[in-house]
């Protein structure tokens, strides 16, 4: 027998070292880049930070002539549109995830549906914006008018439908985050051990009882992770929102009202900003990054606690 093993040559060793250094370097470069961005944004925001302080986040004006800036409506609009979008996207996304993880239809159809939903993620944001303006707004107008005329006493429908505003923005945003939520939820559902489902079916549960009482709860951590990921995406989405949200700094619970978000504010005001307004915009960017970071950290914490709880149980 001839042995085919040989010690690593010097070239192998050098290659190995070089490659290890390269990955090490790229990892640190990424971290440095993030820090650099945060540093630069903070630096540019500094004049505004000094001048407006905390009141920047609690006041509602954006007036470059009088140099008064506050982003409370934009914070509200960002959270409200993302929350609303997430509500729609979770209902649909988890529904799609259930459908493609169960065998209601032949595997080929499931794969097709899964791929089509994932394709939604490939459509550019600006296309969504155009589609929202020319398709979604005309489409929902009759329903929105009806809601206001008949249920206008509810604050949710308290203002007349203005066209661009919270509802069309949230609908389009929901479609944009749907692929994330559907894909991650599907993975969570597929990873539920089949024996749990079998246990429920074996006890005389119907398919839907097994799904709702056993499979979904078992996948709930992963589905929650999907929602957090989707929230992160929704918070930062810019182009479609700038086109659809109405760009009006009002705080209203009415979904028919125009509104504004932090990212849309940035996109719309940058071209003409100068002086202290640039600082104010940078400050707004910081607020947006802060919110996104906070959501992700809270999400991670909850996920971490949930998985720690699962491990403790074993």
């Amino acid at each position: 027998m001839v042995s085919h093993s040989r010690p690593p040559s010097r070239l192998d060793v050098a290659w190995d070292r070089g490659f290890r250094f390269l990955t090490w370097f790229m990892a640190w470069a990424t971290i440095a880049l993030v820090l650099f961005i945060v540093y630069k944004v903070t630096e540019s925001a500094f004049p505004a930070l000094q001048r407006y302080g905390f009141s920047f986040m609690t006041t509602s004006h954006w007036d470059s002539n009088r140099e008064k800036f506050g982003v409370l409506p934009e914070i509200w609009g960002t959270l409200y549109s993302s929350g609303l979008a997430l509500l729609f996207a979770t209902i649909f996304g988890v529904g799609v995830a259930i459908f493609v993880s169960e065998d209601f239809v032949a595997p080929a159809w499931r794969t097709l549906l899964k791929n089509v939903v994932e394709l939604l993620a490939a459509i550019p944001s600006v296309v969504y914006g155009l589609w929202g303006i020319y398709v979604v707004i005309p489409l929902i107008r009759p329903m929105a008018d009806w809601l206001h005329n008949n249920l206008g006493d509810f604050p949710l429908f308290g203002t007349p439908f203005a066209g661009p505003g919270m509802l069309p923005a949230a609908i389009v945003l929901a479609i944009m985050v749907l692929p994330t939520i559907a894909a991650v939820s599907r993975d969570a559902l597929v990873n539920v051990p089949p024996r749990l489902r079998e246990g429920a079916i074996g006890l005389g549960a119907t398919r839907w009882e097994a799904i709702f009482k056993i499979v979904l709860p078992a996948a709930s951590t992963g589905i929650f992770g999907a929602i957090v990921l989707g929230f992160g995406r929704a918070l930062g989405e810019t182009m479609a929102l700038a086109m659809l949200v109405g760009n009006s700094g009002v705080i209203s619970v009415s979904v028919l009202s125009p509104a504004n978000t932090l990212s849309a504010l940035l996109a719309n005001h940058f071209p003409e900003a100068q002086g202290i307004e640039v600082g104010a915009l940078m400050y707004a960017a910081l607020v947006l990054m802060g919110i996104t970071l906070l959501v992700n950290v809270i999400g991670e914490l909850i996920l971490w606690r949930a998985s720690a709880g699962m491990k403790g149980a074993h």
Partner: peptide, 20 residues
């Protein structure tokens, strides 16, 4: 079949208690 399984119970190879 659901009614059948309520009269004919099953215990599986791997213990499969629910996470409750």
């Amino acid at each position: 079949p659901v009614a059948v399984r309520r009269h004919i119970g099953m215990v599986f190879q791997q213990p499969n208690p629910f996470a409750m």
